[in-house]
Amino acid sequence: MATSPALAEVLSRSDVWRGDSLAQAALPGVPSGFAALDAELPGGGWPRGGLVELLPARQGLGEMSLLMPALARISSAEMSWVVCVAPPLPPYAPAWAAAGIALSRLLITRAVGGDAAWACARALDADGVGALLAWLPEADASTLRRLQLLAEKSRTLIFLFRPAAAIRESSPAPLRIGIGAANQANDCGRVALRLIKRRGGALDTPLEIDLARPVPISHAVAGPPPSATAARSLSATAAA
C-alpha cells in the first residue's frame, strides 16, 4: 500500500496507530514477568503514561500475583516507590516482602471517595513514585478522565482496580483487562485475562497465564478433612 511521505510521517508517531496492528508505546513498557502477556501488550509490557484498568471478577483470583513481578521490578530494581491507595484489605507484609517488594519504598493510604482520587492525583504529581495501585470502586467517568490526563503527563505505572460490573461502562483507560479464572476443571490454577480494550484492538480470546501460586494445584487434597491426628490434638488441647 503506497502512502504519501506526509502520511508515513504521521503514522510513525507513537501516539498514532493503525487499527489492525498493536500500537507502539511512547515509553517502553514494564515487563510483566509473563511472556505471553507481554507479547499482547503495546510497548511489550505494562504501559506507563496511561491507566491500566483491572476488572477482577472477585477478590482472590490472583489479581495481585499478576502484578507482583512488575511491582518487584519497580520497587527493587528501579528503586522507585509503590503507592497503594485505598486497598480493600490490609496488605500483609510477609507476603509482599516475599514477592520481592522493598517495604521501605511501599506507601499505603487509606482513603475513601473523593479523597482516594485526590491521593492518586498527588501520587502522580510526586517524583519517585514508580507504581500506583488504586482501588476506586466508586470512581465516575469524570474522575477517571482526570486521572487519565494526569497519567499521560507522568511516567508512573498505574493500576486501577474496579469492580467487574464496570466492564460494561466506557472508560478513558487505554488498557482494560478483565480477570477471571480459567474455566477448565483440570487446569484451575491458571488465570484468564480478557483484554477488553487496548491500543490495537481488543483480544478476542482470553489469555491464560500461569501465576506464581502458594502451592501447585496438583497438590489438591480432595475430599476428607486433612489429618485426623491434627484434629484430635486440637480438640485435646481445647479440652485441656
Binding site: P91, P94, W96, L103, L106, L107, I108, T109, A111
Partner: peptide, 8 residues
Amino acid sequence: NVHAIATC
C-alpha cells in the same frame, strides 16, 4: 491513614 508496613 498514611503508612508503610513492616514484618515483625
